[in-house]
Design a protein around this nucleic acid. Structure first.
Lengths: 115, 115
DNA sequence: ACCTATTTGTCCGTATGTATG
DNA sequence: CCATACATACGGACAAATAGG
């Protein structure tokens, strides 16, 4: 659990952290069911606010990678590993298409015609 | 235009062909605006039915890669090159997610949470 | 089974910076 | 240059789950 944050980067802190956790799951540095340290603890270690860490966790929960429950802590979702690959692909697709100037509707259509 | 078809493969013929054309555009073996041979001709060269070739062309037209007009022939779309990358990503995403057993709705959600 | 204290994420509000018009 | 809107990051109070006695 050796995460680092660059406060000078233009990339938001919560995104930096989310990216690192995502990669950790993809590379199996974190495995399914494994418990993460409490947000407060991670925050202290990184020198950022607890809410910044929580926000990263929330993002990953929306992506199906983490299970976050108050009082119980945060852990890697039961089927996170197979999901990670798709999430990475979805992220690449959106960022590349965005850079090319595509509208959100057009991006969704790209996927729909493949279904 | 050295395409090959494997009639023994489990992959549908029209998909095989679509994949080859897609790759040809991605690698710039085919460039924007370039005209493709008539479907009848391609079909004869590959030993398949003309409709198989047309089906592949239609798929690629839906993806924005080809312009197919009756009487005028088929050509690579004006902005096909930048599109290909996204299409490849979208195809990977869908096929990987499908293999993992995701529903279509879930696949679209993967993308939506990234928008 | 009970009460209480602790742990841990959630909710509400605020300040600051970064576009947008 | 100003006003507006939006997103980021932070702080404090709150509520669910858990652990000890």
């Amino acid at each position: 659990m050796l995460w680092k944050i660059d406060t000078q980067s233009s990339q938001p802190l919560h995104e930096q952290l989310a990216g690192q956790v995502r990669r950790a799951i993809a590379t199996r540095a974190l495995v399914e069911g494994e418990k993460l340290p409490p947000a407060r603890e991670v925050a202290r270690g990184l020198g950022v606010n607890m809410h910044t860490v929580l926000r990263a966790f929330q993002t990953l929960r929306d992506e199906g990678l983490l299970e976050v429950r108050r009082g119980r802590g945060t852990s890697v979702a039961p089927d996170a590993q197979p999901v990670t690959r798709h999430v990475e692909l979805a992220r690449s697709l959106v960022s590349e298409a965005r850079r090319a100037g595509l509208e959100d509707r057009e991006i969704l259509q790209l996927v729909e015609v493949q279904l």
